[in-house]
Design a binder for these strands. Structure first.
Length: 481
RNA sequence: GGCGGCGUACCCAAGUGGCAAGGGAGCAGUCUGCAAAACUGCCAUCCAGCGGUUCGAAUCCGCUCGCCGCCUCCA
């Protein structure tokens, strides 16, 4: 089956045919490292993580790069505020970003270039653009001339004249055209700088991605991803300067852009003060619930982060682990056995086919939940009839499908013990205290003092802890809220 | 103003020409000291509205209404 994907450049769904059959070069815009990463960064990272995982799952040899923008005005400003060197600040937030990504089970890209490590390439590309007449130098700044490229605007569907009538661009009299953008900026005193043919300076924003792509992946690549907001001006400019520099088009064969995460129907923004950092989200929710929430809608759609949506996701994750728990109690050897891959090839193809249609993770998730219902039904049936005939295979097949899907979705890949330990670590009451109260309550139950027993249960429930009695004893868990 | 997108049950969300996936909530049943949890079952003759194309449309086309994003170095 051919993979189809929506290409922002053509605004159409296209068959995916990498320029070298079987091999994929893929670049995704990473964070500017001057603050903690938020849930929007998580969405981009998780979306492209599942995409690159799926391409590998389908047998492509993938070379995947995601950069860190570690030199930028915002970094410099923040560093000055804190009185630390910009590079030190950047390194700190690179570490924080890596930690957040690891927590979300985002695989490490093959290559993680930093802008500051490609300065030489940036200078070379900038120089060649000047030589070709596509860029010009003024007082140590170098600008790209948008009028020099006749198809400027092809990604965002804009044309230069329309943009200028919008007139929201900085008016810099020195520039030939208000839309011309900086490739190289002369450094001001106290700013980090590198020596260049145009004096001491530092790179502009857009040029770094071009340089890193060329340095690590090649002059043209198969897939380039990022948030929707990057379409203009960032990716538009990247195309212009890259194609002008190499004379090769298209610079990127397939452009993929993920949608935004809103918070309670509002755009996340500094001014609204509703930025949700990844690590704050992880205080209340398991990484798996966050990941499921992100993968439960299509990567290009906007999604709304609310308390309810995360609670729903957490309940759904729990449904999976409860089902596995049930299987392990009633048919323990199913979990240990290796499932028969070839027996379920058809089922796998069917369950995963939505991924081939522009990476529709949401539909695959739906298919996995069908498997869970199937397993529970089989278990019920076995219990009711006393016959275990065929049940083992049924369970093994369903679990096999989920296990395979977890390879590219990055969810449902733990044991129930690991999941519940993770979830219960959020308890508001120390575990020893809970255990003590459970014992006290069981004493009361033994003495038929149900009033006392119920009072203890109520007390814990008010603190978000749920007690469940079963034949094997009383267990507790953090209530999903 | 220019460009792009969206509108599917109580909520979230797939489906883009052939009888409307899935999750959450709700209700019922099983279970239980009572519960809770879990599981099972039920839950849109209908896809913002109006026209059109078609044997057949939530899916294609046109118009209307409503919402959102980008055009500010915000993923």
């Amino acid at each position: 089956m051919t993979i189809k994907l929506y290409n922002s450049l053509t605004r159409k769904k296209e068959d995916f045919e990498p320029s070298t059959p079987g091999k994929v070069t893929m670049y995704v815009c990473g964070p500017t490292v001057y603050a903690l990463s938020h849930i929007g960064h998580a969405r981009s990272a998780v979306s492209f993580d599942s995409i690159q995982r799926f391409l590998r799952y389908r047998g492509f040899e993938v070379k995947y790069a995601r950069n860190y923008t570690d030199v930028d005005d915002k970094i410099i400003n923040k560093a000055n505020e804190e009185g630390v060197p910009p590079q030190e600040l950047a390194e700190r937030f690179i570490k924080a970003f890596d930690d957040d990504m690891a927590a979300l089970h985002v695989q490490l890209p093959d290559i993680r270039p930093k802008a500051t490590e490609s300065i030489e390439k940036i200078i070379n590309v900038t120089g060649s653009l000047i030589k070709k007449g596509a860029a010009y130098e003024i007082d140590g700044d170098v600008y790209y001339s948008v009028r020099s490229k006749k198809d400027y605007g092809k990604l965002s569907g804009k044309n230069i004249d329309d943009l200028e009538s919008g007139a929201r661009v900085d008016v810099d009299e020195r520039k030939k055209d208000p839309l011309d953008f900086a490739l190289w900026k002369a450094s001001k005193p106290g700013e980090p700088f590198w020596e260049s043919p145009w004096g001491k300076g530092r790179p502009g924003w857009h040029i770094e991605c071009t340089a890193m792509v060329m340095e690590w992946l090649g002059e043209t690549i198969d897939i380039h991803g990022g948030g929707k907001d990057l379409i203009f001006p960032h990716h538009e400019n990247e195309i212009a300067q890259s194609e002008a520099a190499t004379g090769k088009a298209p610079y990127v064969k397939y452009w993929l852009h993920n949608g935004f995460v809103n918070i309670e129907k509002e755009k996340m923004s500094k001014s609204l003060g509703n930025i949700l950092n990844i690590r704050d989200a992880l205080v209340d929710h398991t990484a798996e619930a966050i990941r499921l929430f992100l993968l439960s809608s299509h990567y290009r759609s906007p999604i709304d982060y609310t308390r309810e949506s995360l609670r729903d996701a957490e309940s759904a994750v729990e449904r999976f682990y409860k089902t596995v728990q049930r299987v392990s109690e009633e048919f323990p050897n199913v979990l240990e056995a290796e499932f028969c891959h070839s027996c379920i090839q058809d089922k796998l193809d069917e369950a995963f086919s939505p991924m081939e249609d522009d990476f529709n993770t949401a539909e695959v998730v739906g298919n996995l939940f069908k498997e869970m219902t199937r397993m529970n039904k089989a278990l019920d049936e076995a219990k009711a009839t006393g016959s275990r005939k065929g049940v083992w295979e049924e369970l093994s097949y369903s679990l096999g499908i989920i296990k395979e899907a977890s390879k590219f979705l990055g969810i449902f890949d733990r044991t129930p013990e690991e999941y519940f330990k993770d979830k219960n670590s959020r308890a508001a009451v120390p575990a020893e205290e809970v255990e003590r109260l459970i014992n006290e309550r069981n004493e009361a139950r033994k003495n038929k003092d149900f009033a006392r027993a119920d009072a203890i249960r109520k007390e814990l429930l008010d603190k978000g802890i749920l007690l469940e009695d079963s034949a094997k004893g009383t267990t507790w868990s953090v209530k999903t809220q």
